[in-house]
Every structure is written in C-alpha cells, then in structure tokens.
Simulated assay, not measured.
Amino acid sequence: MPVAQDRARAAELRVRPDLESDLGKLGLRFGAAVYMRIFKREKLLELWVEDTDGRFVLFRSYPVCAYSGDLGPKLREGDNQAPEGFYRISSRQLNPNSRFHLAFNLGYPNAYDLAHGRTGDFLMVHGSCVSIGCYAMGDDGIEEIYTLAAAALRGGQSAFDVHAFPFRLEPADLEAQRDSPWYAFWNELEPAYARFEQDRRVPRIRVVGGHYLIDTR
C-alpha cells in the first residue's frame, strides 16, 4: 500500500470506531452521503450525513482552526482569501499525502468563479492550523472529516457538496451587511442556504449567465 494511503488508512482505523458508534446513535450509517457547510465568521465546519429518508442530519460541528483573509470571496491568485461559494468534491480531489496531514481540494475556481475572472488553485480543506487561502481544521478534525468523506465516496456518492458561506445567511444578518461590497454576491448564496434550512436536502445549483441558480428540474 502506498505511504499516502497508509496515512489515510491509519487515520480511519483510529477514528472509525467512535464515528460508527456516534452515527448509530443518530440512526445514521458510516459510508452514507455527506454534505458540509463552512461559516467563516463563526469559524465552523458542519458535517451532515444523509439519513434513510434522503434528508441530511447534522452529525458534527468542527471548529475551523484557521482561515486566511476576510469575509468575502477569493478573487485572485495570491490574495490569501479563502473561497466562498458552492463546490463539489469527487474522489480525485482527495489528497491523503498533503503536507498538512490530510486534505481535499475544494475545486476552486468553479464555474461561477471562472465566469467572474477569478484565479487561483489548490484551495483546500486540510489539517494543521496554518492557512494561505485554505480552511485549516487541525489534524484531529481533518481525520474525522476526511474519513467520513472518503467512506461516502466509496459507498456510492459520486461527489459531495461543500458550501462556504461568510456567515449564517439569516435575513437579519444579511440585511446588516447591506453596505458591504459583497452584499449582492451574498444574496446569490442565500437561496441555497435557505433551501437547505427548509428541507434538509442539498439543492442542485447551476451557474447561468454568471449567476448561481437553484436547479428546480
């Protein structure tokens, strides 16, 4: 087995028993589909797991150890901003050989980012507690996050969604940011946030004409 896979396998052996036990208490299954939300201002990553009815249940909330930049999206290579927006991660984006222990690539720039001329690459969710445009979760946190994500992909989920928000996009919180230069952009993120809050199903999102739209097909 390659050294990189040894690291991921060793992490899974450490954390899987407790994960399976805690999932079972919620009626959830190890290997079920996952979904993640990141909130910058709250410095929090939520990991949701799909139940037998196709809805997602909050399983764990992990503190974000570090992210770089301020509230607002990443615009260009070298601006040290962590991305905001909607990203999908497949198995090829997992990196068990990261120099930050374990990691997965968010897939920035996505179609929206490209439509707006945004640049940069290798934006990750990873271990350690150092960030240059990434979301650093610490080694203990990333071992659980990576293990659950890898198990979901092995279990049949083709890709999992990560929605990175500046903060919880509740109406009052969003209205308080009306003077922000990113107010219009955050309003494009809000419908997906609200839809998930309503039905606990991950909305399908398209980019049309440089705008995020919830796919109702």
Score class of each variant (00 low, 15 high):
1 M>Y: 11
3 V>F: 14
5 Q>F: 07
7 R>S: 04
7 R>I: 15
8 A>H: 01
10 A>I: 02
15 V>P: 05
16 R>H: 02
20 E>S: 00
22 D>F: 00
22 D>C: 02
24 G>Y: 02
25 K>W: 00
31 G>Y: 10
32 A>K: 06
36 M>W: 02
36 M>A: 15
37 R>W: 01
40 K>Q: 10
40 K>L: 11
44 L>M: 12
52 T>K: 11
57 V>K: 02
63 P>I: 04
64 V>D: 07
66 A>M: 11
66 A>G: 01
67 Y>T: 09
67 Y>V: 07
72 G>F: 07
73 P>V: 05
77 E>S: 14
77 E>H: 12
78 G>A: 12
78 G>D: 14
78 G>P: 07
79 D>I: 09
80 N>D: 12
82 A>F: 09
86 F>L: 10
86 F>A: 12
86 F>W: 09
87 Y>P: 06
89 I>Q: 09
89 I>W: 04
93 Q>M: 13
93 Q>W: 06
95 N>G: 07
95 N>A: 13
97 N>C: 15
97 N>G: 15
98 S>P: 10
98 S>D: 15
102 L>N: 03
106 L>D: 11
106 L>W: 05
115 A>D: 14
117 G>M: 04
120 G>R: 04
120 G>L: 08
121 D>V: 10
124 M>K: 03
127 G>Q: 06
129 C>R: 11
132 I>P: 01
135 Y>S: 12
137 M>R: 05
138 G>F: 06
140 D>P: 03
143 E>A: 13
150 A>Q: 11
152 A>G: 15
156 G>C: 05
164 A>Y: 04
167 F>P: 13
167 F>L: 15
168 R>E: 15
168 R>P: 13
174 L>P: 06
177 Q>G: 00
177 Q>R: 14
179 D>I: 00
183 Y>N: 11
184 A>C: 05
185 F>V: 06
190 E>S: 15
197 E>P: 08
202 V>N: 15
204 R>T: 15
205 I>K: 05
207 V>G: 11
208 V>W: 02
210 G>Q: 04
217 R>H: 08
217 R>I: 02
